[in-house]
Design a protein around this nucleic acid. Structure first.
Lengths: 331, 331
DNA sequence: TTGAAAGCGCTAACAC
DNA sequence: GTGTTAGCGCTTTCAA
């Protein structure tokens, strides 16, 4: 594999001149430029990005740390981050944490190895103390709201307000026994959505019922299906359910169908994330739609800013969302 | 950020000794080892992987090149490749090509920049000539079967046999007007699945009908929905449809429901990929299930082998698949 | 066992 | 405009 030196030797010029041509720097005599370009082609020269970055002190890589890539919301988000990063000439390294505290700690700790310029992290189970494991000096942008008050850039939607809107919609349909699926002992996001659920209930004058709040330790389809089965078996079952993500809602819809419950007549269902899967299901899913492209772009933008300038005050960007009403509540 | 030199200075030894400790090489005098380890902790030393790799001539990165990350099949596959790569201490760089020839060419061309040890490529629109754009010397493993006879390692299932099995299943249900959705002018995979569809039709003694073969330029839900609408409008509409991926099938199911067609009574539907989305839909989707974990592991394994030893003959691994029968054909 | 020093391929300060 | 050269942080001969 040809190096700058090889090209220089072939063209009969110095490495500097070749470097200038390759990087489009400075003015190069036409004659030399021509010879360098010929030599470039002849040798099939490709710059060694590793060497270049070592020299420049940047790596050209950005890490995207998320729970699981095969959860549609994260897959869609990752696709958008890839696009946004491309515009900044960043390559994206994806790391899965599987949503466990251990996975997140290990990933964050390994990030310090100088091989990324920064990271976009979507934490799930992370605790305040875990951030000590973060390699110091690596710019990080956090996705989602968090109760921990860390001096880090953040991007995400207002989960409380979004959840309130979802539940208000259900209440406006005349539903009075509104359940929630997705409570979780450690996740901030779950706590916020639960809070929104409760405050909307109160605002609508509906009594809170603990038996209508279903915990989900994971947010997969299966968990939604199981939670729905438990809710349906209640002596006084719900007539509506707010799921903390679309996957839970898909599982809930499946169980409802198996139990012979009509959606939305017998039970209305709302999800969260606006994944395409929900839009094509039967019935199609009413859901909270965060602006994923805005999240991806803001995250990359914030990271870029922080990589270029240190000592900036942390920024907190709340991206827009809207409620998309579809068949699962439109009865 | 501390370097090896800083650590050496603090410990009062040479860089070599620190390097030896860090890499677990050779024997180091106990006293020195202790002092180095102390200095390592005191400075919070992290090896600069970029520099290490420049020296070692490897990068520690592997590129996974695929059409779109937010297509569930690719998201699931990517998640599995990430896992498999982790076992080989490879970081994974994901690149999207959006399934266009231009995107695939550009990505392949940029791969040459010494920043990856090898690539796993899932091509879609690539032509034979495009491989000239591939940086020479970069080990590549191709996903899927291809008609182009390139001397590259390959991993994938036997598309023709898998498709035959799907269509045979439909025929065994007594269906006689079996349609196909997903024909494509340039994609090898589409050609193979079409071939399997046709040969199974012939084997079952069913006449081929061109009007029952629907082209899909993309394999998204929307494309499946549109194709199904066209098929349903035919004077002699199909009583079964074989979709070349699950997403097309999801779209087809949606259209069938909107048209009041009962599945599987009026029309049976089979997909391809066995994504989780299909399993939870209503009706749940019968589908060809490739062993995705086997594909991911074989691909990473083959790449590892080729990175370590050059001049190996290309290998072609056919991974297993099975037909998963669910509600969409079980009537 | 450990140290000194070369060099992986590149960029950029400095000289000409 | 172009050449020379130091050095990014690391590994690794070669000597001591």
């Amino acid at each position: 594999m040809a190096t700058l030196r090889d090209v220089a030797a072939l063209a009969g010029v110095s490495v500097k001149t070749v470097s200038n041509v390759v990087n489009g720097h400075a003015f190069v005599k036409a004659e030399n430029r021509r010879r360098v370009e010929e030599a470039l082609v002849a040798t099939g020269y490709r710059p060694n990005l590793g060497a270049r970055n070592l020299r420049r002190g940047r790596t050209g890589f950005l890490a995207l740390v998320l729970p699981e890539l095969d959860i549609p919301y994260f897959a869609e988000l990752a696709a958008l981050v890839l696009r946004a990063a491309q515009a900044h000439e960043w390559n994206v390294l994806i790391e899965q944490t599987f949503g466990t505290r251990e996975g997140e700690r290990a990933t964050l700790a390994s990030l310090g190895a100088h091989l990324i310029d920064g990271a976009i992290v979507s934490p799930e189970a992370l605790m305040e103390g875990d951030f000590a494991a973060l390699a110091p000096g690596i710019p990080v942008v956090m996705l989602g709201e968090h109760t921990v008050d860390l001096p880090l850039d953040r991007v995400g939607i207002d989960n409380v307000r979004a959840s309130e809107e979802a539940v208000r919609h259900l209440a406006s349909l005349g539903r009075t026994r509104i359940a929630a699926i997705g409570a979780h002992p450690h996740r901030d996001t779950a706590a916020q959505r639960l809070q929104g659920y409760r405050s909307a209930l109160a605002a609508a004058g509906l009594p809170p019922r603990d038996d209508l709040v279903a915990t989900a330790l994971n947010y997969h389809r299966r968990d939604g299906a199981e939670a729905m089965a438990a809710l349906a078996a209640l002596p006084d079952p719900p007539d509506a359910v707010f799921c903390f993500n679309d996957l839970l809602a898909v599982g809930a819809l499946r169980t409802a169908a198996e139990r012979g419950l009509r959606v939305p007549e017998d039970i209305a269902v709302v999800g969260f994330d606006n994944t395409e899967e929900g839009a094509y299901g039967r019935p199609s899913l009413t859901t909270v739609a965060p602006d994923k492209a805005a999240i991806a772009e803001a995250a990359v933008h914030l990271l870029r800013r922080r990589v270029e300038t240190s000592d900036l005050p942390p920024e907190d960007i709340r991206t827009p969302f809207r409620l998309v009403v579809r068949e699962s509540t439109a009865g």
